[in-house]
Design a protein around this nucleic acid. Structure first.
Ligand code: MN
Ligand code: MN
Ligand code: ZN
Ligand code: ZN
Lengths: 142, 142
DNA sequence: TATTAAATAAGAACTATTATTGTTTAGAAT
DNA sequence: ATTCTAAACAATAATAGTTCTTATTTAATA
């Protein structure tokens, strides 16, 4: 959220705090959840028309690297980004591709995991993807 | 697995059982787990050089539609396919992108889910993606 | 204010995937 | 077995998403 937060993260890695980066971060938060690069690009254009799509891509990469946003591994085709860095899960509609946050606490996963994976991998986090059909696709008559 | 199984699935939907489709299905099972369209294409080429990449893509779509394979929602960039239709999970290395099957039974998820999601969505299945660093990337000195 | 490494805009290039089109073929009907 | 036809195919053009290249600009530092 906070720009100061971002500034210090950038400074820590000797990355420059440019107006483009600030606008892109703002756009990410204004956008509907899980926006694509193109969605972000269009929002940024409203206030900062000279910004290029390549800069948006590059900046999104950077923001992922410094841990301001992450990629929502939930879409075929285009990359979607997620500004929510706290632990949460996703529901994915197989009809319309709609992605929705799922906020439930699944302690069991976090609990049992370290033992199971411990000797093979370094597990950093886990997320659930629920597959199904969203309300809109299930009852399209409304 | 069984070709008879495939044949009947195709027949049920009045889809033709072509040699290309059979070879592509075979290639999918010979390939390392979670192959891309291109990986499948190359394997098929060995035995059936006239097959086109477009046919591979189209056939993979078809196989997904009839439920012979599924898309492994686990990669940025290119689509990966999964021949294992039974419930399982994935580990994804953030360094090298390696995808590994995770075979643990997480009853808790299947148990708590229907209630939580019930009124909002039709949940058909759920899978966990574990994010982390694989052994190879963690100890690259070997 | 001058310096410089990093970031940017513009657009070409690239990769994965889908669409188009004319030809072939599997499977059904004779 | 031969004919028929919708479906599938090969070839390849087109598109979408993303990355790369290069000349120019700029944030941060001295
Ligand atoms: Mn989310
Ligand atoms: Mn798998
Ligand atoms: Zn839907
Ligand atoms: Zn790895």
């Amino acid at each position: 959220m906070s720009l100061t937060d971002l500034e210090s993260k950038l400074r820590d890695r000797s990355l420059k705090c440019t107006p483009q980066r600030l606008e892109i971060l703002k756009a990410l938060h204004e956008a509907p959840a899980h926006p694509s690069a193109d969605t972000v690009y269009r929002i940024v254009q409203g206030r900062f028309p000279s910004v290029s799509l390549a800069t948006v891509y590059k900046t999104l990469d950077t923001l992922v690297e410094i841990g301001e946003i992450r990629i929502a591994l939930v879409s075929e085709g285009k990359t979607l980004y997620d500004t929510r860095m706290s632990n949460h899960h996703h529901f994915l509609c197989r009809c319309c591709g709609h992605v929705e946050d799922v906020d439930i606490q699944l302690d069991c996963m976090e609990n049992c995991l370290p033992q199971v994976m411990g000797k093979y991998h370094q597990v950093e986090r886990s997320e659930v993807v629920f597959h199904g059909v969203c309300q809109k696709c299930f009852q399209p008559e409304i």
